[in-house]
């Protein structure tokens, strides 16, 4: 597919999502056939725009600290001082990723109760692993020659880290953030089963009341958001990769 075509496709998807969020009424005729007779075709218990914003806020609130902490941890275990933790941290990442997001979410509820907190915790914990894994891969996968050359120019360990290693590892780190964000967006949808405010609410309301119109609008909206986010971040990491 040609670049301008892909660009137009992206623009159209974003425009469609925005149109649906700001004037959902315009889409009523399309959704009406899927709603049971007499039931509303557009979700009416909360504004779709509000739900989308709080959905995205939860994701950001979990992934920003997850990124900071996991990048810091990955830097630590890739330095000589933390090298002892390297094999263990790899094992923990492997084991941790076998835990299903739903289980993490459900297990957080007995500890912190219902609402936004269990979702935030699950999203945060789940976000750590891919970013940590990718940062570590990015930092340890550098050509030894690069590190040697940097050393040869007389750079200190700190300078090498910030001026050479991290910039070179950036595309791989961003790829990890992208994976975490997409998982978080999906897990936040499940968060609605524990009363977090988000778009999952629309789908679950639809499932509970047999209203396929709700299921479709919630599903298409979250699906479109995930695709836009995944695609946009992919573009950003391609740009950083091309630059470095």
């Amino acid at each position: 597919m040609s670049r301008p075509f892909v660009f137009l496709l992206r623009l159209a998807l974003v425009a469609l999502v925005l149109a649906f969020l700001f004037v959902p009424e315009a889409f009523r005729p399309l959704l009406e056939p899927f709603a049971p007779v007499g039931a509303p075709a557009i979700y009416d218990r909360a504004s779709l725009l509000d739900l989308t914003i709080s959905h995205l806020l939860i994701v950001v609130a979990a992934i920003v600290p997850a990124t900071l902490i996991s990048v810091a941890l990955a830097i630590l275990v890739s330095r000589p001082i933390g090298a002892e933790f390297l094999p263990l941290s790899r094992a923990i990442v492997n084991i941790g990723q076998t835990f299903p997001p739903v289980a993490v979410l459900a297990l957080a509820v007995p500890v912190v109760g219902f609402g936004t907190w269990p979702t935030l915790i699950a999203l945060f914990l789940y976000g750590l692993l891919p970013i940590f894994e990718n940062t570590l891969a990015g930092l340890t996968g550098l050509q030894p020659a690069v590190a040697e050359a940097a050393k040869g120019t007389g750079m200190t360990g700190r300078q090498r880290l910030f001026q050479v290693e991290l910039p070179l590892a950036l595309p791989v780190i961003l790829e990890g953030v992208r994976i975490s964000l997409v998982i978080a967006l999906s897990t936040a949808t499940i968060g609605s089963t524990v009363a977090a405010k988000g778009l999952g609410e629309v789908i679950i309301a639809g499932l509970n009341s047999n209203n396929l119109a709700f299921v479709l609008q919630g599903g298409l909206l979250t699906g479109a958001l995930a695709v836009i986010l995944y695609d946009g971040l992919g573009e950003i990491s391609r740009m950083t990769a091309a630059r470095s």
Binding site: S186, T189, L216, G219, L220
Partner: peptide, 13 residues
Amino acid sequence: TIPSIALFGMLIV
């Protein structure tokens, strides 16, 4: 990338 609840739900249609 499509969230699981969304895909499970939409396939009902």
